[in-house]
Design a protein around this nucleic acid. Sequence first.
DNA 1: CCGTATCCAAGCGGATACTG
DNA 2: CAGTATCCGCTTGGATACGG
Lengths: 118, 118
Amino acid sequence: MADPAHKDAPCMPCSVEATLNLIDGKWKIVILYKLLKGTLRFNEIRRLLPGVTQRMLTNQLRELEADGLITRTVYAQVPPRVEYNLSELGRSLEPILMAMKAWGDANLNRSLPAAEAA
Amino acid sequence: MADPAHKDAPCMPCSVEATLNLIDGKWKIVILYKLLKGTLRFNEIRRLLPGVTQRMLTNQLRELEADGLITRTVYAQVPPRVEYNLSELGRSLEPILMAMKAWGDANLNRSLPAAEAA
DNA sequence: CCGTATCCAAGCGGATACTG
DNA sequence: CAGTATCCGCTTGGATACGG
């Protein structure tokens, strides 16, 4: 990649890949999923994701915001208050999120992929 | 990660996350997408993914195989011949793949020639 | 043709401490 | 409450060489 004028070799089904890239990340998809249900504050999301660190949560939220999938609203108050919401674009991901959840429920259904019934 | 004796696992939309984990990886989703159209040999896949290395392609294929999403058929011949196919489980991902492609086409619409959905 | 093996760089992600 | 900043290990993924 020593050629700045040359983009990465574009493989063509990139729309499916590009979509994946937006929701890829250790916590992004769960954040989006949780936000489907409504507005959440920073610490609310944090509580919903046991194991996440402030750094990662901030990072993932910023990336989602940069990709236009969520909105971030800061209230200039003395106890700081920041609310996160899905943008219209983010909300349009709902069918995909639901399809993925349904698939997981149906196929790996809280179990390990023990064997595939041929 | 898997801690059966531990009661806290409040992150219950994990099915959506678990599903994502199966298709996560730099090339996996494109491989699955390409395999939707039918059987492919190793070098055929390689040619469809400009920029992929043997190591990565092998790695991604092995992971997909381990997850039961694709099947690998080796023909004891000279020259060697290895065919990859979607398993039934892998094929059941089609709605998700298509939904992701449709979303990408609609929302981040690059200059995509329609030469892919053949 | 279909891989393995080895080396190595980049960056993702965790732990911790500090701030407005 | 909602972040930033720093350090650092681990994994991902690329380049190359070799093997059956």
